[in-house]
Simulated assay, not measured.
Amino acid sequence: MHGEYKIPGGKLVAVDLEVRDGVLRDVRVAGDFFLEPDEAILLIDRALEGAPADADAAALAARIDAALPEGAVLFGLTSAGIGVAVRRALAEATDWTDYDWQYIHEAPQPPALHMALDQVLTEEVAAGRRPPTLRVWEWASPAVIIGSFQSLRNEVDLDAAARLGVDVVRRVSGGGAMFVEPGNTITYSLSVPDSLVQGLSFADSYAYLDDWVLGALGDMGIQAWYQPLNDIATEQGKIAGAAQKRLVGPGGGPGAVLHHVTMSYDIDVEKMLRVLRIGKEKMSDKGTRSAKKRVDPLRRQTGLPRETVIDRMVDSFRARYGLSAGEVSAEELGRAKELVEEKFGTGEWTARVP
């Protein structure tokens, strides 16, 4: 069995192993990381030899930590990351490069239709009728998008939203509210088979699916990092938030993961504060005194037009994993429009948590 894991902010670790009589055998760890002393790599292999095949990543990491000599230096590598690579080998996880990725970037769409397209495209990936897909959104109108489990009245000033012409919709994933305006954010979705994140914890899957974005931002001179559970941040503040939804495949078979991200490009903070109800507890949790400090637009940090930022992000993804142009099919669009009528465009769904 073979498993790989790109450690967020670090290097690639690969593990080859067999399972005999319920334990790990012939374990070999490799990668482009740095490790001192040199013989520590053999100590890691020996620590994993004989480990129960059902041990979780934390238990495997504990075995490694106990075997390493005092003063050992792991650069671009962590014992936890090795544990994850082992679990991915055991789960027979796939890798980004195992797929023919498709890219969709179409004309602006109403907010409710974007919610529906996310669900439809991810269901199509789960059913095997669509390849893994990267979709960049364009917004037809300003909107507040609340998380699946948020209270509508606690998160949004509906009167202010109506006065300002801001649509309010609810997405299928959890997480917090987002304020978007056409041209002021960069929003994208990844619809991927769940085999891509096999062996990863829910929290680890966020960092794993965000790693390519960190590389793309780095190429534009922005040193960004993943901030658990679902933020991307720089020294100047948060620039993006992610959310996920797991969908089961047809007949309960292998499913797919929807991972979508909204990045701040040039947010109108004053308007955002008039529409969103940002409580004191949330502000305290973020360690800030002012909501204005909670978002830091990419426009100021890159000095680049929004379209250029998107192009460079997409080019970075293509260089890593390959990417071919695609589109939403007529059947997919038709089903998404039905979902707007049945679900995402209805008051029942939007106010399902009043």
Rank of each mutant, 00 (worst) to 15 (best):
M1E: 10
K6L: 12
G10T: 09
V15Y: 01
V15E: 01
V19S: 08
R25I: 05
A30I: 06
F34G: 06
F34A: 10
L42Y: 12
L48R: 10
G50R: 03
A53F: 00
A57S: 13
L60F: 01
A61D: 03
R63F: 10
A72Q: 11
V73D: 00
L74W: 06
G76V: 11
T78G: 07
S79N: 05
A85G: 04
R87P: 09
E92Q: 11
E92F: 09
A93H: 06
A93M: 05
A93G: 10
D98P: 13
D100E: 14
D100Y: 06
D100F: 07
A112Q: 04
A112F: 04
H114F: 12
A116Q: 09
A116P: 13
Q119N: 12
E124P: 08
R130T: 07
E138Y: 06
P142Q: 01
I145A: 02
N154I: 08
D159M: 07
A160Q: 02
V168L: 07
G174E: 02
G174V: 05
G175L: 02
V180F: 02
N184C: 15
I186R: 00
Y188D: 08
S189K: 01
L190I: 03
S201T: 07
W212S: 03
V213Y: 04
V213I: 14
G215L: 07
A216S: 02
G218C: 09
I222H: 05
I232S: 00
K238W: 00
K245V: 07
K245R: 13
L247V: 13
L247N: 11
G253V: 04
P254D: 05
A256R: 06
A256D: 08
V257G: 01
L276G: 06
R277W: 11
E281L: 14
D285G: 14
D285R: 12
G303S: 11
G303M: 12
V309P: 03
I310M: 12
D311C: 13
R318K: 15
A319R: 15
G322H: 12
S324V: 14
G326E: 05
S329M: 06
E331G: 15
L333Y: 08
G334V: 07
R335Y: 07
R335S: 03
E338P: 02
K343R: 13
K343L: 14
W349L: 07
T350F: 00
